[in-house]
């Protein structure tokens, strides 16, 4: 039965996830095409100098890519459940409702994580051709909050989509609008170093937030 549950989730998000993974890989490809172009025109040593001492963030085209993924997967996975309140069918299965919701959330998170890992591996692998670790590692420190923002967006959008009352949807949106920007503050490369762990903990905690909307849905809040 659990397999069937996961298969149902996979049916909902498979094309969106695959499409997003391909678009993400294209974005990474574009990023390094631009690096190739810029190093050809600026000389590699000047380009390194710009990255190290002039605040050039060569990885910035990736800024909103993880966020877009979180948004896309969440909408693809949870919006169909709200049409005609289909999620209620799931709640009628002989399973613990919270476990069902956590299973849905876990599967979505794993798909997102898989795509993110592909993108990060691709980024690090190609970057290793152009740059030494002294440039790649600070770049990864700056990328981490953007990927955490992708997960947070996924959890918060799921919460908002499943919330049955429009008034509260608006209020949750307000909370999301104050929380998500915390991952996108402009700063120098690797400026997020001291706070990445805290943001990761908050993101992991947020992963069970869907239970709140699910509970309200189950209790028939209108």
């Amino acid at each position: 039965m659990w397999k069937a549950m996961i298969y149902k989730e996979w049916l909902k998000i498979r094309w969106f996830t695959i499409l997003y993974a391909l678009l993400g890989m294209l974005a990474v490809g574009y990023l390094f095409l631009k690096v190739q172009h810029d190093t050809t025109f600026n000389q590699p040593n000047n380009y390194w100098n710009l990255i190290l001492f002039k605040g050039l963030k060569f990885f910035s085209p990736l800024k909103f890519i993880p966020l877009a993924g979180g948004l896309l997967v969440a909408v693809a996975q949870y919006f169909p459940e709200t049409v005609n309140k289909r999620i209620k069918l799931t709640f009628h299965l002989p399973f613990n409702e919270n476990k069902v919701l956590l299973c849905m959330m876990g599967f979505g998170s794993c798909c997102l994580l898989a795509v993110y890992l592909i993108l990060i591996t691709l980024f690090s692998g190609i970057a290793a051709f152009y740059f030494p670790s002294n440039i790649i590692l600070p770049a990864l420190v700056s990328l981490i909050p953007w990927f955490l923002a992708g997960f947070s967006t996924y959890y918060l959008v799921a919460l908002i989509v499943l919330e049955p009352v429009w008034k509260f949807r608006f209020l949750y949106l307000l909370v999301a609008a104050t929380f998500i920007p915390l991952f996108f503050i402009n700063g120098s490369t690797a400026a997020y170093q001291p706070v990445n762990i805290t943001l990761a903990v908050l993101t992991v905690l947020l992963s069970i937030s869907l239970l709140f909307s699910g509970y309200r849905f189950r209790k028939g809040e209108m």
């Binding site: 915390l182 239970l211 709140f212």
Partner: peptide
């Protein structure tokens, strides 16, 4: 677990609002 999810959301809201307000 549902109660916990609510308090986590409150923590997230407090974090966001304590910065934004």
């Amino acid at each position: 677990m549902v109660k916990l999810s609510r308090y986590i959301l409150i923590l997230i809201a407090i974090t966001g609002l304590a910065i934004a307000l």
